[in-house]
Design a binder for these strands. Structure first.
Lengths: 129, 129
DNA sequence: CCAAAAGTATCAAAGAATGATACATTGATT
DNA sequence: AATCAATGTATCATTCTTTGATACTTTTGG
């Protein structure tokens, strides 16, 4: 369900945050669902428990999860509409899309193929709504 | 023409590579165009010349630029269709798009707004072709 | 009430990014 | 041809980030 790349240049905790946000956006994680304990997920992935804990902390600070000693970590929201966060999100998404499309174009992918990729992702997140 | 954020979590040399790839994809950098000397761009941006040099080196290793002492750095290609690079690019683009859309959805952006953002970027790169 | 399980805190170690400085090569000017 | 300025490159130090090892605290279940 969660996959990471140990030899990627992007930090593991960032990858983990991305994976969980993906699961949330896909609707495969619902409010009330419990996340695996940090030790268990860390062991499964072969990383340190602090790395997983950091990901959980960032998700918690984003208002998506709630963590507590002994209690575990649970999803409490699937959206973070924190006031002006939407404006920042807009810019962030814009540059992410721009970078991805530039990457694709320079790699020589055809316009049709790129459109297919984008369409596929849209359907993944908004098909059943 | 090139803008970076000094307090972003993403490394400056990565930002620079992204900026140049964007300029290439937009068609604002053409084959034969010379890039600014590392010292000049570094001074303009307020960073170390090694940071710029590293970005140039990565772009050179990608087959897009050609650098040499005394000569400077020049754009030699706008595409890198290195055999199996397209397959890797496909995956990379797919996860980039997935992450961006998940980010947007969780931030509470409307589907219409996200579609507008994506459409705008497509036009930027493929309008005049 | 106790023990197991969970997240948290602290500190060390490893690695990456950035900076300071010196070097080597090219090209233009004379 | 000689020289010099301009350019990328190499080397090393420094700072910051990430990751790891370990101990601590809190909750829950029996």
């Amino acid at each position: 369900m969660i996959t990471i790349s140990l030899d990627s240049t992007i930090p593991i905790h960032d990858q983990l945050v991305g994976e969980f946000r993906r699961l949330i956006a896909e609707g495969r994680l619902k409010v009330g669902d419990e996340l695996p304990p940090v030790r268990q997920l860390a062991a499964d992935l072969g990383v340190n428990l602090n790395t997983v804990a950091r990901a959980y902390r960032e998700l918690t600070e984003a208002g998506l999860m709630s963590s507590g000693r002994g209690r575990g970590t649970v999803l409490i929201s699937t959206v973070e509409r924190k006031g002006q966060a939407q404006l920042e999100a807009r810019k962030r998404v814009e540059t992410s899309i721009a970078n991805a499309l530039a990457d694709a174009k320079i790699a020589g992918l055809s316009l049709a193929m790129i459109e297919a990729i984008v369409e596929k992702q849209f359907e993944k997140y908004w098909k059943s709504m």
